[in-house]
Design a protein around this nucleic acid. Structure first.
Lengths: 200, 200
DNA sequence: GACTTAGATGAGGGCATCCTCATATATCCA
DNA sequence: TGGATATATGAGGATGCCCTCATCTAAGTC
């Protein structure tokens, strides 16, 4: 049975509907990024999209579903980026792999900011966030495993979690924003670590 | 002139008042940590402290002031811990210094959880958070500078920011909570980095 | 061109939240 | 002890938010 009372997002059926949901999602992305999940209001989001509230509720029956839809969209984009990385993996040095991973979040600024606002700071209703995190963890572990075939799977997973943490920290520092040199230092730290664990 | 309309927390004048604010702050700490800033309600906090709402507002004229008071209290505790570290510094190896810093947030679990909930995810009203972060950055930079007297101040500051980021990440991983081995990996990463930058 | 369905629209119901305030009680000091 | 002030107390005002719904318009389909 589906979770509690959330129902799902209604998919648009006509071209006008597709434009609407795109505008609504973009607006939601911006407002969530600026104000955070709780402080963002449905009225603000609709206004930002130039749509009446009723239209917002036509496609997203409540605020949680709207947030979930954004996280899902972001997860899809990250998945595609990881596909590309996986294809390019054989030609990459460990340091280059580290850099590519560290660029994953910053490369999509608006989605990243909204994700930072949505993924944490949502009591209970964070199933989607957990799923996103686990997906990232598993896929990164898979990448790393191919570069360290002799390392136990458990150990690879722990390295993946640690590195994922550093990826998230880079995203947070960039969103803050911190001085470019300081961010470079942090990236260097993550790179140093990955080379230490996997070899060059 | 003081910021906008916030006024300040009223200091208790009698012994009973001191007990009240202590109870109220402890309750606020717990509720903020559990629910986050926005979702936590003044009614919940008062109830948790066994106090009527009126008493809560007697000492904290609004929710923001209450949050600020908690951040200030936490900043004070961290300052004292840094005093102790500063005194012990001459006898510490770089790795030991790194470990001590990485323990700074986790050593006070409840305050840490509330700080994580309050420091981010508060649009606009985050002056206190910024002050806390800057204080930490400057004090860590001061510690590091004493171990690397020849390094330019600017470079030391960037290392401090990067290391502070890793300290925060450790706190987040512990609050999540992540597997102990993964946290150990992350700590090892930060240690590795600091030794690389400052020497043993 | 008529019919069916997707989408548009926005006033307002219901509700939870922050905070006020008038009154009552406890605490301390001279 | 008596007076002054700090603290206690909780009903309810004001506000803003999420979401509904009844009605209307546009878009496809035969």
């Amino acid at each position: 049975m589906p979770s509690s009372k959330s129902t799902a997002a209604r998919a648009p059926q006509r071209k006008r509907g597709e434009l609407r949901v795109a505008a609504l999602q973009d607006a939601a992305l911006a407002v969530f990024a600026e104000k955070g999940f709780e402080a963002a209001t449905m009225t603000q989001i609709a206004a930002r999209a130039g749509a009446p509230i009723g239209s917002l509720y036509q496609f997203f029956p409540n605020k949680d579903v709207l947030a979930d839809a954004l996280i899902d969209r972001y997860a899809g984009q990250l998945g595609e980026a990881l596909d590309a990385l996986e294809a390019a993996l054989p030609g990459l040095s460990t340091a280059a792999l580290a850099d590519a991973l560290l660029d994953l979040f910053p490369s999509r600024r608006h989605e990243r900011d909204a994700a930072l606002a949505l993924v944490d700071s949502r009591p209970d209703r964070n199933t989607r966030s957990a799923a996103l995190r686990d997906m990232m963890r598993d896929r990164i572990a898979a990448l790393l495993a191919r570069r360290a075939p002799d390392k136990p799977a458990q150990a690879v997973r722990d390295v993946a979690i640690a590195f994922l943490g550093s990826m998230k920290m880079v995203a947070m520092l960039e969103a803050e924003p911190a001085p470019a040199q300081a961010i470079a230092e942090f990236r260097s730290m993550a790179r140093l670590y990955l080379v230490d664990r996997l070899g060059a």
